[in-house]
Amino acid sequence: MATERIRFAQVSDIHLMPETACRWWWMSDSPRRQLEAAVAHLNQVPDLDFVVFTGDLVDQADPESFELFREILAQLRMPYYLSLGNHDVDTLQRKGRFDREQFIRWCQSQFPLFPAPTGYVDYSLSPLPGIRLIALDASLGSFPLPQGVLRPSQLHWLGEHLQVVSEEWLILLIHQPPFISPTQMDAVVFRNYQLQKQAAAALHALLAGHGRVVAVLSGHLHVPKVHVRDGIPYLTAPPLVGPVSALRLFEVDLNPRRGILRYHWVHLPEPGPRPLWHGFLMGRRRDRWGEIPLRARGARSTLLPVAAR
């Protein structure tokens, strides 16, 4: 049985903004320099197939920062794909900020995005034969409300779409992690806990029924986390903006019946002093690198441990 190997990277929470803009104390002095450093590093990674950016590409949903993002990413030597974060659009459609339609058009200028008929920034494409990349928009409320949840229309579309791509391995991009983490820094995320819990359970049931999931990739928490449920890996990325400026690299061996996901994250140089809580955000050893066995449809549903290296 032939086994294919793919390599890809995840970058999250760039929060690109004008150099003169006011920023939080824990952010990099220059998100632009951090993004340029990430692109330079990715260009040196051998045999990298593609890169995914899991939201909060910019900080204030402003067109100037989006154009700067596109200018910097023009230097990337491999394809890249984008998903929406809560800082990327302003649902109140205030002047000088992107709304969802503008975000979609901006993405379409960089890669083939055909939005799903959900009314949100959801799409599906195949970056490689046998691999299906699905991005889902979980952002809610007025800018930049951190809370996120998938709506029934999105879950309905996903369920129907998974039947069409039943033989492909899935990589899902959702900026807000589907499962609430005890390290969530935004207490407001718990306001609709039951709604989130129900949506997360529905999403997980769809993915478990599909039975070929490489990973569900998120950002938002600014803390690297790894959670494996019923053989499905849910990984939350370290942020590029700091205080831990890092990106994740993945290597996946796949065949029609099984696979293995290997991951580690690369720490980029950080300008300025490290906050006192830097060590906490570095994550546990198993959150920094490891490997996770993947199952195909028909495998017994069990909780699989993360094998740290």
Results as ranks from 00 to 15, higher is better:
96 G>Y: 07
61 A>W: 11
51 V>R: 11
144 P>S: 00
250 F>G: 02
27 M>E: 15
98 F>Y: 14
72 I>R: 06
296 A>C: 12
20 T>R: 08
245 S>R: 07
260 I>E: 10
159 G>K: 04
241 V>H: 04
287 D>V: 04
92 L>A: 14
158 L>I: 12
78 M>C: 11
224 P>M: 01
139 S>N: 07
236 T>P: 06
139 S>R: 08
282 M>K: 15
226 V>C: 08
52 V>Y: 14
289 W>I: 04
168 E>V: 00
164 V>G: 00
223 V>Y: 14
39 V>I: 00
155 L>I: 14
127 P>G: 02
170 L>N: 06
265 W>L: 11
182 P>N: 00
299 A>H: 12
255 N>F: 09
225 K>C: 09
92 L>N: 12
292 I>C: 05
232 I>E: 07
103 F>I: 04
225 K>G: 09
11 V>S: 03
294 L>S: 05
114 F>Y: 15
227 H>I: 13
255 N>M: 07
157 W>S: 02
65 S>D: 10
271 P>F: 03
174 I>T: 03
170 L>W: 04
59 D>Q: 15
136 L>D: 08
228 V>L: 06
140 L>F: 07
185 M>F: 12
230 D>R: 11
232 I>F: 08
3 T>E: 15
206 L>Y: 05
213 V>Y: 11
38 A>V: 05
62 D>A: 01
54 T>G: 10
233 P>M: 04
223 V>I: 14
295 R>W: 15
90 D>G: 00
2 A>W: 15
185 M>W: 15
263 Y>R: 01
6 I>P: 10
213 V>A: 08
136 L>H: 04
132 R>M: 05
154 Q>G: 02
271 P>A: 04
76 L>D: 02
25 W>I: 12
88 D>P: 02
70 R>T: 07
75 Q>N: 05
94 R>P: 12
286 R>S: 11
171 I>Q: 07
18 P>N: 09
209 G>E: 09
71 E>M: 00
221 L>G: 00
195 L>D: 15
128 L>C: 02
58 V>N: 03
59 D>K: 09
204 H>E: 12
303 L>Q: 05
232 I>S: 06
281 L>K: 11
173 L>V: 02
178 P>H: 01
296 A>F: 13
153 S>V: 12
250 F>L: 03
223 V>F: 14
306 V>N: 00
238 P>A: 14
272 G>C: 05
16 L>P: 13
206 L>K: 00
205 A>Q: 15
2 A>E: 15
16 L>W: 08
44 Q>Y: 13
167 E>S: 09
124 S>C: 13
31 P>Y: 03
204 H>S: 07
259 G>W: 05
93 Q>P: 05
304 L>Q: 08
104 I>H: 02
287 D>C: 01
193 Y>L: 06
83 S>P: 14
93 Q>M: 10
88 D>V: 03
29 D>G: 12
162 L>S: 05
174 I>E: 03
74 A>M: 03
48 L>E: 03
254 L>H: 01
183 T>G: 00
57 L>D: 06
108 Q>P: 07
12 S>M: 06
61 A>F: 09
221 L>E: 08
51 V>P: 15
292 I>N: 13
94 R>I: 07
250 F>S: 00
78 M>H: 03
